[in-house]
Each structure stands twice: as C-alpha cells, then as structure tokens.
Design a binder for these strands. Sequence first.
DNA 1: CAACCTTATGCAATCGATCCCATTCCAACT
DNA 2: AGTTGGAATGGGATCGATTGCATAAGGTTG
Lengths: 357, 357
Amino acid sequence: MRIGLKEVAAEAGVSRSTASRALSGSPLISAETRAAVEEAAARLNYRPNRLAGALRTRQSHLVGLVLNNLINASFHTIAEVVQRRAAAEGYQVVLGITDADPAREKAFLLTLAAHGVDGIVMIGTGKNGATTNALRAEGVAVVNVIRRPIDSAAPAVLAADREGAHAATAHLLDLGHERIGFIGGEPTANSGRERFAGYEQALRERGLDPDESLIERGPFTPAFGTEAIARLLGRTPRMTALFAANHEAVFGILPTLASTGVAIPGDLSLVCYEDIPWLRYWSPAITVVDNGASELGELAMNLLLHQLKQARGAENGETPNGRAYRVGAQLILRDSTAPRARGGDRPSGPTAAAVEA
Amino acid sequence: MRIGLKEVAAEAGVSRSTASRALSGSPLISAETRAAVEEAAARLNYRPNRLAGALRTRQSHLVGLVLNNLINASFHTIAEVVQRRAAAEGYQVVLGITDADPAREKAFLLTLAAHGVDGIVMIGTGKNGATTNALRAEGVAVVNVIRRPIDSAAPAVLAADREGAHAATAHLLDLGHERIGFIGGEPTANSGRERFAGYEQALRERGLDPDESLIERGPFTPAFGTEAIARLLGRTPRMTALFAANHEAVFGILPTLASTGVAIPGDLSLVCYEDIPWLRYWSPAITVVDNGASELGELAMNLLLHQLKQARGAENGETPNGRAYRVGAQLILRDSTAPRARGGDRPSGPTAAAVEA
DNA sequence: CAACCTTATGCAATCGATCCCATTCCAACT
DNA sequence: AGTTGGAATGGGATCGATTGCATAAGGTTG
C-alpha cells in the first residue's frame, strides 16, 4: 500500500495535523513528538505526495521552460543551466518545444498554467506577451530570455548581440582590415538585425561604409553558409576578413574554407558568433563572440527564483513591471585573426559589456 | 477570481458532477446540457486544474525524462523527440539531468515519483534498476534507453553499437583496407566496449588480428581525439583507414587531419560514429554510422505510451518483464571513404539491422 | 483555589475535480 | 393503474496534505 501522512501519523501515534507540522518544521511541535514522527516517516519510507500539497498550498515546485528547440547550442546550454539551478532549489523543470510557432507557444503556456507551474522561463517568439501577462496576473512568475515581447511586463534577460557584433568588427578593424565580409541571418530575425547593426556601426565609426558586395544575409542553415562563402570568395577585390554572425551558417562556411585552401588567418581573418567546442578545436582555433548562453540561463533563473520567493511573502500583491538585464557578449581571441599587414600589433583583452537597459 | 468547475456549473445552472461529466465527454449527458456547459465553460474561459484532477484520478499527464546532459547530440536529439511525442499525446515532460551520477539519478527518480509522473524515460547510468523496479510496482511506467540495468524489469530500447561498428569496419575492409585505425571510448563505458567488439569482430572475420599500434581508447573528449590521431599518424606503416568510434574525440580528430594536410579519402579513409550536421557539411562529407537517436527516442515513447494505455485498462495488474528492442545502426556513405588501391569498386547500400533481443 | 496564559495537539474544513450511489423523471409494458 | 427500466442529474465522499480554530494539559499568579 502507498504510505501517506495518515500512515505515518498512526505509526507515530499522533494526528495527521501533528505529523504534518512535525515534518514541515513548524515551531509549535515538541522536540520528542517531532523526533517520533520523523522516525516513523523514515521507518515507513514516507514520501509526501507533492500533488496534494500543491493543490492545497498553490505551490507546485514546477517551473516551465519554453524554447524553440534543443538542437541549437545556445538553447540547450540554457536548458541545462536552468534545469541544474532549478533542481538545486527544489524545483523541477517542465520542458516545452515550440518550433518558434506562436500558436504552439501559447498552447504550451496555457498547459503549463493548468499544471500549476510556479514560474516560467520563456525563450520565446515574442508574440505572446499578452498571454504571459495574464499568467503573471494569476501569480505565475515569468522571465523572458533573449527576446522580450513588446507588450510583456515580465522581466527580461537579453543578449548583447549588437555589442558583440561591434566588438568582433572593431577587433578586425583594429588589425588593419578594411574589406570585412559579413555573413548573417535574415533581417526579420532579431539576432540578424542586431548583429548587422553592430557590424555597420563599427564600420561607420571608422568612417567606412558597408559594402553590399561583402554582405550576405540569409536563413539559419549550413547550406546558406556554403553558398554565401562561395559567393564572397568569388568577388574582387577579395575581403581580407570575415565576420560570420549566422551560427548555423558557420557549419557550411568552415568546411568550404578548408577545402578551397583559404589560409586562416593568412589569407582571411575570421570571427564567428556563438562559442561551441568545435570552434575551439578547429585548426586554427577560431576567434569567437561568446553570447554567454550559460550566463543568460543563470541570470534568468536567479530572477525567477527571486520572484518565487517574493510571491511567498506578499501573496497577490501588485506585480511591478520587470526590468531588463543584458548579458554582455565576450570576444574570445584565438588563432583565426591576424593583422592585415605584417608587423601589426595584436590588441589584447576580451571585450565585455554588462549594461542594464 | 480563478474560474473552477463550480463557477462553470453555476453559470450553466447544473451541478458540479454534471458539469464535470459534460466536459469529460461522458455518454450519460443529454446533448442540450452538454452544449450549455460547454458554452458556459467557453464564456468563463474555464481551464481545468490538472493538479486536482491528477490527485483524484492518479494520472498527472506528466512523464519524466532522465538523462546525463543535453550537450551530447544523441541526448538532446532524443529529448526533442520525446518532448514532441509526449506533447502530441497530451503529456508534459519533466526534465532531469544527472551528470551520470547514480545518486543524483536516484534522487531525481524519487522526486519524479513524488510529483506523480505517469511514466519515465530513462537514459540512465544503469545503477538504479532497483529503484525503477520499485516505481514500476507503484504503477509508474518505465522505459530504459541505450543502457539497461541488469536488475531492471522495465522494457529497454538499445542502440546497436556492435553492429554499427561492425558495419563501419566491414565497409572499410570491403574497400581493400587492412591497416584500419580505431579511436574509441574507454572500455569501462558501454559504447566503448561494444564498438570495439564490433571492430574486432569484423577484422577477425577476415582473418585479421587487431593491431595494438593502431588502437587508441580513451575519454570522451576532443582533447583525447587530438592526441590519439597525432599518435596514430606517427606510427609506421601508416594506417590507410580510420574508424573514429568516440564521438567527442571526432571534434579533435577532424581539425587535426585538416591542418596536417592528410587528404581524405586520398591518404586516409574515414568513418565516424554518430551523425551530426557538421559531418555532413564537412569537406569532404564524412561517412558515418548513425546510431538512430531519433528512432531511439521515438520507439521509447511508443513503448511508454503503450504502457500508459495498458495501465488505464488494467489498473494494478501484474507488470510483466519488459522486452528489449534494438534500433539498428545505419552506415551512411558519403565522401570520406575510398578504395585503397585505384580502380576498386565501391560497395553500395547502407547496412541496417533491426533485431529484437 | 480560581482565573489565566502558554504550549502542544486534534478536529475538521479546504484546495478542485472525479465518480459512486441515490434519486428523479418519463416512457413502456403487463 | 401499477410496475419496471432506462436516461439524466444531483449529493457527497474522496484523493493527500495543509492550516485556522478549538481545546487539553501544565504552569503561574493574585
């Protein structure tokens, strides 16, 4: 038979209320009674039914994690961090994959609410601000990650795509490069826009105009990378540096460069976006902009846990509009960039920005 | 105020029992009543509280997913498939990351049980068969994936590592190679052992003995791959083919081969284990053994859902010992393998095995 | 010794949905 | 007309833990 609090209470010779209080650490219980109950619980191998507790206390100790997919490195890195942090604080993570479909995302949010989650970490499409606001009104904590819906009142943890792209481009400019290629994402995507903006800004700061013949923007696929790099290599005068800001495209760019015999950094200096193991072990090791996926997840969970503790204190108070935080991008210098002319100096030190918006 | 079944019943002018039956599709309800209740529910935007339902019916519509990490490609692929399939069937996935630590794994299993999960997909350490058996006795469905604890009575979905390694090695032998290098995992790991066994078996079938000077076995890290390939390339007579059976090591092997100018497949034919996008887009595209991660996840969820449906019928019947299934490995021929001598023929067709243990 | 407070405990309601059992209503049959 | 049976509905217990309120036991004080 399943062991409930009733059985423990009987074993210890007390009432259910007393047993409950003893196990939950209430101060209204004598030391002997507490010991007796704890011993009885241990003897019977009692494990409380969280479902019942959740129904009564309105605390499920579940948090939802909504994201596009688990294939992308940033996403599964964040998922790992969120799960670890949650588990360490006694929360379990319910996982939802949306494929960047707002309808699926909304359905998933409602399902999470039906399961009584205490909070939600949302790496979302940005289309369901209204739904998350409604959930917040019902007392569910929410944190937006990477993207923040315009109409969302929940706090957000954002990446510094523009700053990261700026740092990458500035680094190449510092090395003396002027013809700097850009392979990025669609302008419709947030990261596509922001990273291009950072690239453009860095160029203009040095009095350079972006050169359309050096710019390729397209879908987040390796195939696009293969095509884009082939086109860029065919143009003359050839670029001397390349900023690969479309992570998936990198999977197409690097093999093509290797097979066509372009020497890195001899013929071409290269900076890629998002740090993954491959790039560190590539030959040569690739200089990257690390968007700080772990830190994004870490900070998001901190904010969520903070909200959860607040809620415990002031049930049903007003929910203040959330602040936005930004995790600085970090330029990690490796061996894929070099001065254009021989003898140039290598500027040192990673560039980090941690600003609050 | 939160809308419960009580409010819906009041709005529709019926009792809570009737409202419940109307919404759950009981046949004991007249068409008009049903319509009235459904309309009231829609008007009030009623969303049932799954927690309450779960407490009463002992069906939480939650399934647990236990795995080592989300970084490894096979793991996050399986996680995606499991989540998708679960969501499609109305189940939500609770995620647990164990870092291959049996103690963490056990704690997580118990927590899942406390949350009342209906089932568990377990990509486990193999050390918690007793715990999973106990959960099964309490009515929780369990499926083991990739590894099956010796003492576990739950069904298992296993990879065909030995067959996959055999197919890879046989393919290289068919191409006329005889000096075939092997870079694999530690013999203490399941996959390390099995893949080496397949390699060895294929050699012996052709009357060849494994040559220790061509064999490197070590940890699942890119760094090990870098060292191992360097050692193998230094030995004479040099191997003409390489079977890279340690997935993480591949991250170190490929860049080293590229930078040291070893022509593939000209100087060296190469087969790697586990198919990931990088390998398809490498130059040349790498021939791989695909362990069928998606299929493993798919089959595991099928088995789990099957058990869940069974349970609904015969509550608390006997739980028969689970069958083991094996997902065949698949050799995917690309451009990284070629005959040793010029003019050799290329054998065609992937090798697949789907056997039941 | 009564009035009173403190401390520890038990009783019973509660969370929200489900489902067994009883009840009502109406039609059909003897 | 009286009985039977089926269909539709309502009442209330139930899942298991939590918690407000009442109360008992023990100690102190006027």
